[in-house]
Computed example of a mutant assay.
Amino acid sequence: MPNPLICLLIDDDQDDQEIFSLAIEDSGLDMQCVISNNASEALQRLIKDDTFLPNYIFLDLNMPRINGVQLLTEIKKISRLKHIPVIIYSTSSHPKDKEATQKLGASAFITKPSGIKELSLLLKEFFQTHYQPAYE
């Protein structure tokens, strides 16, 4: 039986973390959701733990100290992580944010919806078009 996909969510808002985790569950996807509470915590784990390779990274833009744009830039500098899709997951829907993050290597941009059902549908749609198999 293959391992579940690993999704790393980097978001400092606990309500958004819970909504995202519930939406992953609700979507019926075989996926484990790992959460980092801020960019510093996530970056430390991604740098220090060579065995931790998420299949997807969902990244909030608006975080204290290190924001999502800064973290995206750092992630793309790490050669073993370059192939991992980084999806911006933000309250922003501003075209400039989408354009700027895509130039830095983001694979997609999802504006946070207001509820679990909406997010679950968005995630199902996203994974249907951006599916990446689990690592062996």
Rank of each mutant, 00 (worst) to 15 (best):
A134S: 13
L43K: 12
Y89M: 06
Q17D: 06
A23F: 02
P133Y: 06
N62T: 00
D97M: 04
D60A: 00
K76F: 04
L81D: 08
L81S: 07
I66T: 06
H94Q: 05
F109L: 04
F126E: 13
S93Y: 12
F126W: 15
L119M: 13
N62W: 00
Q32A: 13
P2F: 06
E18W: 08
I10K: 05
I87A: 05
H83V: 06
E18F: 10
Q44I: 03
L121E: 15
S92F: 04
P64M: 00
K124V: 11
L8I: 10
Q32T: 15
F109Y: 09
A100P: 00
K48Q: 15
Q32L: 14
I116D: 00
G105Q: 06
T129V: 15
D30I: 08
H94A: 03
L122M: 15
I6M: 10
F20Q: 07
A23E: 03
P54G: 06
L43M: 14
D26A: 08
E18K: 10
K117G: 00
S92N: 04
M1V: 14
T101C: 11
N55V: 02
A23Q: 03
P113A: 03
P133M: 07
Y131N: 14
T91I: 01
I24T: 09
Q102D: 01
L123Q: 11
D15P: 07
T73R: 13
E18Y: 09
E136T: 10
I57D: 07
K76W: 03
G68E: 02
L8R: 09
K82F: 03
I66M: 08
I87E: 06
A42H: 09
R45G: 11
A39K: 01
I10S: 03
A42D: 09
Y56I: 12
F109I: 04
K103D: 04
Q17N: 09
Q14P: 13
A39M: 02
L61G: 01
G115A: 00
C33L: 08
P64I: 00
L119F: 09
S92A: 05
V69Y: 12
D97G: 04
I24F: 09
K82Q: 11
P95R: 08
C7V: 15
N67H: 01
D15T: 14
L8M: 11
A106P: 04
T129Y: 15
I24P: 06
